[in-house]
């Protein structure tokens, strides 16, 4: 138990920050116009202000109640981020097969339940499966193989 509900305090203040930033940026860069002739800035500014207000409405009561710690699991977050980045970086230079294989193998590392051998087999199976569905089956314009050098 925490003596304040920090989860809602952080969430609320984060939304307030995002809302104010959007409203200020939009007010500075786009014309707001009038209600009859709304400018491009009207919606972003008003939505930003409303979002900031809701953020405060979420955060304020949280100062006065107890909260619980939020379990933050960093390993899946980091490993899967790397896996998705790998896919984004590899898909064009080296093609589908290698990109899918690497992404699958990296993704299995988010938990310690899959052995390396099984991860390699899963990667190969996924490469074959996705190639069959997306390139052979649906005919999407994706390269199967590529060589960047």
């Amino acid at each position: 138990m925490l003596d304040r509900d920090f989860r809602d305090i952080i969430a609320g203040l984060g939304l307030t920050a995002a809302g104010s930033a959007a409203a200020i940026y939009a007010a500075a860069h786009y014309s707001v116009g009038t209600v009859t002739r709304m400018g491009p800035g009207m919606m972003p500014v008003s939505l930003g202000v409303i979002l900031a207000a809701f953020g405060l409405a979420i955060a304020a009561p949280a100062f006065f109640r107890r909260g619980e710690t939020v379990p933050l699991n960093l390993r899946p977050l980091i490993v899967l981020t790397i896996a998705i980045l790998t896919f984004a970086l590899m898909i064009e230079p080296v093609g589908l097969i290698a990109a899918v294989f690497s992404t699958t193998v990296i993704a299995t590392l988010a938990e310690s339940r899959v052995s390396l051998g099984k991860a390699l087999i899963l990667g190969a199976a996924m490469s074959l499966l996705t190639w069959t569905i997306f390139i052979a089956g649906l005919g999407l314009p994706i390269r199967s193989f590529g060589w960047p050098f």
Binding site: A83, T103, T104, A107, T108, L122, L129, F134
Partner: peptide, 15 residues
Amino acid sequence: PYHYLYPAILIFLCI
């Protein structure tokens, strides 16, 4: 087991 499923789902999402 889910540990074989989630990498597959991730791949489908990326593609």
